[in-house]
Design a protein around this nucleic acid. Structure first.
Lengths: 190, 190
DNA sequence: CTATTTTTTGAATGATCACTCAAAATCTTG
DNA sequence: CAAGATTTTGAGTGATCATTCAAAAAATAG
């Protein structure tokens, strides 16, 4: 058996960057060909079709995101102390000029009712993030309280992802997060 | 001079519904032709091109949204009492099966850096909404406090719009809004 | 009614879309 | 190295895209 010659992780990174930046519909397979350097036939052999490539790109992005979150969550004694750190990273990101929000949030909103399968796939990835937070809250809270906190946190993260996409008022985002999530342990310095 | 024969408002309602539901890129002009009943030539004479039609669709949607908000805001003595009413409407909407989020939020996230002009146009519409809230807060707060409250409110609205697009847990959205926006005057009943 | 201006019609256009496939290249096995 | 299995190549396919335009219809002006 001849093995695949190209670096699949590298291809997925390039492809997911294109999908992330341009969106699913605006990213043509010709764009993917240009971004990855692969020829059409190779892409179709490895990923089946555009949907298949998109799904694997989503997986790639989600796995990376979850790993980053875990890395921070495990640095702290409890989730309530770790999350301000995560939120501050998020807000700082959103002030970069080349900021293009969150791949999952963008994809979720772009896909419509006629693309049920892909849309459901994105929802699954978003639920993985919510479930991660929930599992950390469960360490010191009831199931009900943990899921309420995770939902409230997700609403704030989504809000910051969208607000940050068109406005870059860092201080107001911090203020909104501090007021909106009073049960977190915020550091004293701004 | 021969006047336009078709009902422009009706055409814009149909067009903006298509753009809202499917997104800018996934809505072909052939779709618009089918949805509005107009022939291509008529659309291009009236709106110039796809971008022009999209902009007027955004205007149509924004004007309708702002009118609905004003209608509720003027029913109450102050914004802090009116906004829970608005948020409850939003949350109830987001639990409908055919819910497709907010046209402006979806458009903002769909448009990328290569479509600067359209993206900026959507940002303007979103700022109109934020400015409306801000103007109501200004009636009883400092400029600083008013803009902070408007920003925090927008973050919550965006968050609800996104969270509601993939999950329909009404009670948790209400809880998140109540905790996250404690300076609003919430009614006692759930 | 006639002349003029404007709108409507809808088939047609070139560009781009997702995707294919037969031939060539490359790898693994023995 | 030779045989067999797999991957790569890249021009090519039909479908769909945004848009055009000349001819027909309709509205207004005088």
């Amino acid at each position: 058996m001849a093995r695949a010659q190209f670096d699949k992780q590298q291809v997925l990174e390039n492809a997911s960057n294109a999908f992330w930046r341009l969106g699913y519909n605006a990213t043509s397979m010709q764009t993917v060909v240009a971004e990855t350097g692969l020829k059409p036939g190779s892409i179709y052999l490895a990923f089946g079709n555009k949907e298949g490539l998109f799904k694997e790109s989503l997986d790639f992005y989600t796995q990376q995101s979850l790993a980053k979150l875990e890395a921070i969550l495990t640095q702290y004694d409890n989730a309530e102390a770790a999350i301000p750190h995560i939120l501050m990273n998020l807000i700082n990101e959103s002030c970069q000029t080349e900021y293009c929000s969150c791949f999952l949030v963008k994809s979720q909103l772009e896909l419509n009712a006629d693309q049920t399968e892909l849309k459901e796939y994105v929802s699954q990835q978003l639920r993985k993030v919510e479930t991660l937070y929930q599992s950390y809250f469960l360490k010191s809270h009831s199931e009900e309280e943990a899921s309420a906190r995770a939902a409230s946190l997700m609403v704030h993260i989504f809000g910051i992802r969208v607000y940050g996409y068109h406005s870059h008022s860092k201080e107001q985002l911090i203020a909104a997060a501090r007021i909106g999530l009073p049960w977190l342990i915020w550091p004293n310095n701004a």
